[in-house]
Simulated assay, not measured.
Amino acid sequence: MRLDRAEGAPCVIIRREMLDTTQSEAAPPKDEPRGCLFALSQPPLMIFLAVIGSLLLMAALHDLFLL
């Protein structure tokens, strides 16, 4: 399909290959979806959460015993 427009405007050509949205058989099958528990089990995230948790714990103990 070709749309002719005014001078200076680009024309658009759409081919059947561009409209094909079917998945090819070469796509790897998904074994199982990975959810929130998989993300929480990653070491960098666990280290980050441990640091944040220890900072919150230290702030809470400071408020309880020193103020």
Rank of each mutant, 00 (worst) to 15 (best):
P33G: 00
P43Y: 00
D63V: 10
P10V: 00
A9P: 01
P28F: 10
M58I: 15
V51N: 08
R2V: 02
A26F: 11
L40Y: 10
E32M: 02
A6V: 06
L67Y: 05
P44D: 03
L64I: 12
Q42N: 10
I47G: 06
C11D: 06
G35I: 08
T21S: 06
L45Q: 10
G8T: 03
L55T: 12
D20K: 04
A50G: 15
P43R: 04
L19A: 05
L56C: 15
L49Y: 13
F48E: 13
A27K: 04
R5P: 01
G53C: 13
T21L: 09
L61C: 15
Q42G: 07
I14L: 08
P43L: 02
C36K: 11
F65K: 07
D20L: 03
G35Y: 09
A27D: 08
D31G: 14
T21W: 01
E17I: 07
E25Y: 05
L67G: 14
M18G: 02
L40S: 04
I13N: 02
T22M: 05
P29V: 08
L19Y: 00
E25R: 11
A50S: 15
L56E: 13
R2D: 00
L49K: 12
P44A: 04
A26D: 15
L57A: 15
L66Y: 08
M46E: 11
L57P: 09
E7L: 02
A50P: 08
S24R: 14
L66W: 08
I52D: 08
S54L: 15
F65Y: 15
L56R: 10
P29D: 04
P44L: 06
L61D: 06
I47H: 07
I52K: 12
R2P: 00
G8M: 02
L55R: 09
I14E: 07
L37W: 07
V12R: 01
L67S: 08
A60Q: 13
E7F: 08
S54N: 13
F48C: 13
D63P: 05
D31M: 05
E32P: 02
P29I: 03
L64T: 14
S41D: 14
M46C: 13
A60E: 13
F48N: 12
A26H: 11
R16F: 03
S41C: 12
M18C: 01
D31E: 11
P28S: 11
C11N: 03
I52Y: 10
D4H: 03
A60N: 13
R5H: 01
E32V: 05
E32K: 08
D20R: 05
F48D: 14
T21Q: 03
D4F: 00
V12Y: 00
F38Y: 09
E7Q: 05
I47F: 07
R5F: 00
V51S: 14
A9N: 08
P33T: 05
L3G: 04
E7D: 03
D31P: 11
A39C: 09
P44I: 02
L40Q: 11
A27C: 07
L3N: 10
L56V: 13
L61H: 09
L37Q: 11
I13M: 04
L49Q: 13
F38G: 01
L19F: 01
A60I: 12
L19N: 03
R5M: 02
L56A: 15
M58T: 14
E25C: 06
L19H: 01
R16Y: 02
A26R: 12
K30V: 15
A60M: 15
